[in-house]
Simulated scan of single mutants.
Amino acid sequence: MPERQRADARRNYAQILAVAEAEVARHGAAASLEQIARTAAVGSATVRRHFPTRRALLEAVSRGRIEALSDRARELTGREDSRDALLEWLGEVVAYSVSARGLAAALTYDGVEPPSVHQNSCSAALEEAAEPLLRRTIQDGAVTPDVTVADLITLIVGIVLATEHHPDHATRADRLFRLAVAGLSP
C-alpha cells in the first residue's frame, strides 16, 4: 500500500486486510470477497481497488509468513549440513502452508502470465530467499542439479492442496513430503 494514499484509504486498507486475514483463516482461499467487504464496512469496489485479484488479497494476507520463511531460508544457508538445512526449511514451508489457510493457494501458478506489477510476489520472494540454500545443497552433491526452488514450492503446494480436506491434514502433508524427499537424493 503506497504511503501517499489518503488517510481514509490507508485505514480502509488496514481494515480490509485485518478482516481478510480472519476470513482466510476461517475459509481458506475461497473466502468471500463480498463478506470481507461487509465485515470491513466498505463497498466491494473498495476491496477490489486495494486488491484487484483474489491472488493479490491472498498474497497480502500471506506476506508476514512469506517474510518469516524467507528470513529462515537465509538463516539456514550457512549451516554445515546443507541437505538437512534445505529439508528443515522445506518442512517449515509445508507446516506453514498447512497451518496458514490460503498460503498454498497464494503460491500456486494459475496458468496466466501475470503482468509484472501483479506477479506472484509470494513465490518470487521464497524463490529468491531459498536459491542460495538450494545452490549450496546442489554444490554439495546432496540434491540433483536440475532441481529448482520453483519445483520444490510446486511440490509443496501440490501436497498441501491435495491433503487440505484430510482429517489429519498436517500429518498427511508431512508424510507425503517425507516420501517425496526420498526422491530428491541423487
Rank of each mutant, 00 (worst) to 15 (best):
R6Q: 14
A7L: 14
D8L: 11
Y13E: 01
A14G: 06
A14C: 05
Q15W: 10
I16K: 01
I16F: 09
I16V: 14
E21K: 15
A22D: 14
A22H: 07
E23W: 03
V24W: 01
R26K: 15
A29Q: 09
E34W: 10
A37C: 06
R38A: 12
S44N: 08
T46C: 12
V47W: 02
R49T: 10
T53P: 03
R55I: 04
R55E: 09
A56D: 14
L57F: 07
S62L: 06
R63W: 12
R63H: 12
G64F: 03
G64R: 14
R65V: 10
R65P: 02
I66F: 06
A68R: 13
S70F: 05
R74W: 04
R74E: 13
R74Y: 05
L76N: 00
R79T: 09
R79N: 11
S82A: 15
R83Q: 05
D84L: 15
A85W: 02
L86N: 00
L90V: 06
G91A: 09
G91C: 05
E92M: 11
A95I: 04
Y96H: 12
S97G: 14
V98K: 02
R101G: 02
G102D: 00
D110I: 05
V112E: 04
V112R: 09
E113P: 00
P115T: 08
H118F: 12
S121G: 13
C122T: 05
A130H: 00
P132I: 07
R136N: 11
I138N: 01
D140K: 10
G141A: 09
V143G: 01
P145A: 12
T148A: 06
V149R: 00
I153V: 14
T154W: 05
T154S: 13
G158S: 12
V160M: 05
T171M: 12
R172V: 03
R172W: 09
D174N: 06
L176K: 03
F177A: 05
L179V: 07
A182H: 13
